[in-house]
Amino acid sequence: MTNLTVNLPGLNLKNPIMPASGCFGFGKEYAQLYDLSELGAIMIKAATVEMRLGNPTPRVAETAAGMLNAIGLQNPGLTKVTGEELPWLEKFDVPIIANVAGTTTEDYVEVAREISKAPNVHALEINISCPNVKQGGITFGTDPLVAQELTRAVKDVASVPVYIKLSPNVTDIVSIAKAVEEGGADGITMINTLLGMRLDPKTGRPIIANITGGLSGPAIKPVALRMVYEVRKQTDLPIIGMGGVATVEDAIDFMSAGANAVAVGTANFVNPFVCPEIIAQLPEKLHELGYESVEELVGRSHRL
């Protein structure tokens, strides 16, 4: 029997596959389609202290093998997430990774402290990398020292392990990874979306109302894979890899490059069953490659 389990700080996963934050809401919609207990974990939509109404529409635009989004972190706010969304998810046997966002350090600290108290939240994912909010967010993720201080502040108050979600919109992602490691991060999730834009060919006007948006989907996979590979070379921290994963082969690639687990974002929109399908295909794929467990596969590209 192939062993799909993965043990990471706070996370004893039955398999390494989970939906990525913002692409799965708080689980309700996909629960109409399949049993969420099949998933390794669920990364829920970002929560902020107060509710956010997000950006004007259009918020999404299709691009070659990808899409841009500028949702603007729309969410019902911390109280509703801890009071309604998280309790609803308790009926499933699946650990929740709570995505935390904000515009100031105090915001992050408050959300991290409160949301980590929820019984089914087994880890936090600190979103220092959302390209779609005007202040904060992105600056936290592009300056190593700022990222490190934020990591420390969140670690001080969180009652579960803290994973920092890195932005690809930097010249040297490894320096950010090293900085948050020194700040006490328990793990890294990567990557968030790449800042991009698309124009209306007739008018030259940007299609996204926010002008720019974050690029995701198969188009970004080579960039994401390279970044996971580079970060893995320089740190032993657990990495949850993502960016364009749509097939079991993609998931294998990320784990080969050094990711301990893999998140699937945009592909859920294309194929709502993509996560359970990848999970079902993993044992045979691993077997074909001559591995008995996910853990044996992780990082194989570095051992060649």
Partner: peptide, 17 residues
């Protein structure tokens, strides 16, 4: 009509006030 991502309510692409 709105531009959509998921089409099932999960991604907040198609929101109106």
């Amino acid at each position: 009509e709105q531009r959509m991502g998921c089409g099932i309510g999960a991604c907040f692409a198609c929101v109106c006030r």
